[in-house]
Design a protein around this nucleic acid. Structure first.
Lengths: 217, 217
DNA sequence: CCTACCGATCGGTAGG
DNA sequence: CCTACCGATCGGTAGG
């Protein structure tokens, strides 16, 4: 480390960065500290230290510590949801193929945005209920994307009759989300490898014989 | 509530309970408070209040707050592991059938012990590394049970050749563990329903044609 | 953004 | 287990 004290050192006013730039730096640092310590255990003091600012000065940018968590969590949720909905709407021979693509995309996005995703999945519960709902939206948007695809596939006869779409959606989302707990960029499995495996087994788990036959992978 | 202040009220020395009884009450209360607030946000003050004791008096039973988390987390982990290993070793026509049973048992155990399980899965990371390892053991015991069964099934030709047992184990554990995030005792799905679904889809996800045929459910 | 604070609460302890 | 504490740190603020 260039700075063994962990303090970035305060700058003179002349070095002040543009507000937008500072804000981005602040969010990035907060994400990292929340990831390492957990939201509750993370202190504004440490965040301030890392960006070379006094703790009180953070309030030039925020109204409360909670604002930081909200921002971090909201940002990654929007991004992830965008990825997943885009893939779900794309063209494809069959709903089951689209589901396959959505799972892959979701898992790869998780792996490539491990730190903010982990904060989202682990610390969302630290937000008060109203702000949590503000992030998630009134609908179960994420779950809804998966569920709709499964319903569609079921209507097309590609999914077994005894499969409950909501239960299946929760199950698939679970195996996918859990990835943040064990994936490591330098680990033995690549993001693509994990994404492919999860998508493949999830599809096989719910597909009817007809559905399985229609997937030519 | 019988006591609207949230304080249980202190007892006279004559009402002092046996140490073992008090200890059990303490652990149970700590589990609940950790569940509701998260470990970091939970205060010893609140735990003490709920059992009608002064905060300082807790140190008659513990050396640190961390002791409480360790105890809670260790207890439920041992119990869960016992359930799963017992089921894995039981008699059965095929390894895949045993895996089916293990997944069901694991999920039902999770649902029936939702609060301590949630604390285990969510707050384990709040323990320092050495005590975390002390809980989990040096081996990945949980993951190992699932992985071994999958390896066995693969050797018996019941699992597809292209399935990586470790990846499959992590995937199945993920969908099962995630249940603590959405299962509610009064929700629309029963523990048995969820357990059956997860087991069924997980098996179908990895089974070979021969393996699928050998499972007559 | 810094200076200079504050009240509240936290985990924990000595001594009985 | 209670009495009676303590130092540290926390999130947050007034004023510039």
């Amino acid at each position: 480390m260039a700075n063994p004290t962990g303090l970035a050192g305060r700058r003179s006013a002349a070095e002040r960065k543009p507000r937008k730039e500072r804000w981005a730096e602040l969010i990035e640092t907060a994400t990292q500290v929340f990831y390492e310590r957990g939201y509750e255990a993370a202190s504004l003091q440490e965040i301030a230290n890392r960006i070379g600012m006094l703790k009180g000065s953070l309030y030039y940018y925020i109204q409360s510590k909670e604002d930081l968590l909200f921002e971090v969590v909201n940002e990654v949720h929007q991004k992830g949801l965008a990825v997943v909905t885009a893939l779900a709407q794309g063209p494809s021979p069959s709903p089951l193929e689209r589901l396959h693509r959505v799972i892959r995309g979701h898992v790869e996005h998780t792996c490539h945005n491990l730190v903010p995703t982990a904060v989202f999945l682990h610390e969302l519960s630290a937000l008060p209920e109203d702000r949590r709902r503000q992030v998630l939206g009134d609908k179960h948007s994420y779950q809804g994307v998966f569920r709709s695809l499964i319903e569609e596939a079921k209507a097309a006869g590609e999914v077994r009759e005894d499969v409950d779409p909501k239960l299946a959606a929760l199950s698939i989302l679970g195996s996918a989300n859990w990835v943040y707990r064990w994936y490591r960029p330098d680990g033995e499995f690549s993001a693509q490898q994990i994404a492919s495996h999860l998508a493949e087994t999830a599809i096989r788990g719910i597909a009817s014989e007809a559905g399985l036959a229609s997937c030519t992978r």
